[in-house]
Amino acid sequence: MSLDPSFVGRTYPPTAPYQVGREKIREFAAAIGATDPAHHDPEAARALGHPDVVAPPTFPVVVTMAASRQIIEDPALGVDYSRVVHGDQRFAYTRPVVAGDELVCVNTIEEISNRGGHGFLTTRTDVRNAAGEPVVAVWSKIVVRGEA
């Protein structure tokens, strides 16, 4: 199965706001063993100039992975999710995610290629807060493996 390159440049409608909870950040930080007090204690985060606990650097993937279902489940694009593996990931931060953020994602398909029977899909997700200010831009490349 190959991916249709005419989808490059397509931008999807903004997602419903994701409420970043303090306990979710604590849970994520605990799951990866990140013990810095700024991930757990609002006072420690405030001491660094943040309004509430600070998410670890890869936390935005929790939000963007859910948001990317828009693309993965787009019937017109036709990605077979059971054949998907994660290729690349990148985050460019304007600021860290903090508890209390309401994050809206806008997904754009940046690149599609087909090589060796596999499909390659790069998406950029612009993550903004409720005021529309940029928080982090997230790139993700997935590989849709061809039938062996």
């Binding site: 810095d36 700024a38 991930h39 600070v54 690349d88 990148r90 985050f91 460019a92 931060y93 860290p96």
Partner: peptide, 10 residues
């Protein structure tokens, strides 16, 4: 510090 990462990819 826990908030110093500006760009991160792999």
């Amino acid at each position: 510090v826990p908030d110093a990462v500006v760009d991160f990819g792999a």
